[in-house]
Amino acid sequence: MSSGMSVIVRTVTRFTYALIIVFGFYVIMHGHLTPGGGFQGGAVVASAFALALVAFGTAGLKGALNRHLLQSLEEVGALAFLGLAFAGVGTAFFYNILANSGSVFGGSDPAALASGGVLPLMNWAVGLKVMTGIASILIIMVIGARKEATE
């Protein structure tokens, strides 16, 4: 069972895998302009990983999703989010230091992509955290299932 599912599921997964990942990154990237955000986009990317894991099993992935790398990236995302929160601690915790400052993300046009202050950076941090966290949970569950099946 750990080798995956039928040919139909595998073929559809090959077509849709990259499309789902690109849509998830779009949702994260435009989180401060359109509906969505870091959590939602990360969940969409993680659902693409879940689709690949269910369709191919751990054998078909060939180590493309490294579990230890994913867990390290999750902590990188969490620490980036916390660091961005502490960056504004001179005024208040979670103060938006970059908004209306005229620097990189500090434009005054609310419809531009490079606006919103620290909001896009926080979107990327939370998105990275959610997608790698949920993907590592799924990989751990599939590996545990395979170990118990062989014993």
Binding site: F94, G107, D109, P110, N123, V126
Partner: peptide, 29 residues
């Protein structure tokens, strides 16, 4: 004008009420 962003929900979640999002990230961890 304060947070220069069009999505009000993201502005509330990550800026005005950022402490809640910190708790959500802790729950996921």
């Amino acid at each position: 004008t304060e947070v220069v962003a069009n999505n009000v929900v993201t502005a509330v979640v990550f800026d005005y009420r950022g402490f809640d999002t910190l708790g959500e990230a802790t729950v996921l961890f």
